[in-house]
Amino acid sequence: MIELESISIHFSGRPVLQNLSLQVPAGRIFGVLGGNGAGKSTMLNIILGFLKPDSGRVRVDGVDPGRNAADARARIAYIPESVALYPELSGEENLAYFAGIAGCRLSAVETRRLLNRVGLRDADAPRRLGQYSKGMRQRVALALALARQARVLLLDEPTTGLDPEAATQLATLLRELSSEGAAILLTTHDLWHLSLDTDEIGILRGGCLAAQFHAADLSPQQLAQAYLEPR
């Protein structure tokens, strides 16, 4: 579903990604682990079509985002770390607004149904988003992904700032979505959740994938070792 093949990109002469290749097939959750400046955001920007790689091949559900950004983005649901939505609008209004931009107009009933589906109660739906916790905002964003029937989910640091309970609920939701056939790519620093909630784990270092594991093969301690080892 997401295919990156030998992606390289330079910013003012400095290589940021070098020969990066990874694949996330449908129904799988891929976690990318990397320190600050490892190139995680650049990778996401390339998948979203905000940046064009200098060389390499990118496909999102078979579409090249570098050439046809709109078509690629129509297949992607993107949830940034801050889950930036409109604090002045309620959860359901936010959902309706963003879905509307993507071209699907939701009725009030559909909106409610989607929010319920991601675990937001009816009492929360009409409240202003400014009063939501990050976990609740993430659910609105996931509801948006559902509304748009996105085949690909990109999550930037989804567990940062979540309490353990919310993080667990998020993992459950992601698992449900992937079992329905979505390809999910998430980036994180969080070793613990990564090893529990993903299928595949890649370690991004120096602009390329330094190692790749099956999550089931490793305990969090082993993952930490693998991540820290080369230093």
């Binding site: 993107y78 940034p80 770390e81 879905a99 993507a102």
Partner: peptide, 12 residues
């Protein structure tokens, strides 16, 4: 606030 990326990512 980072919303611009989200708006653009919706295909606007």
């Amino acid at each position: 606030l980072g919303r611009l990326r989200v708006l653009l990512a919706q295909g606007a």
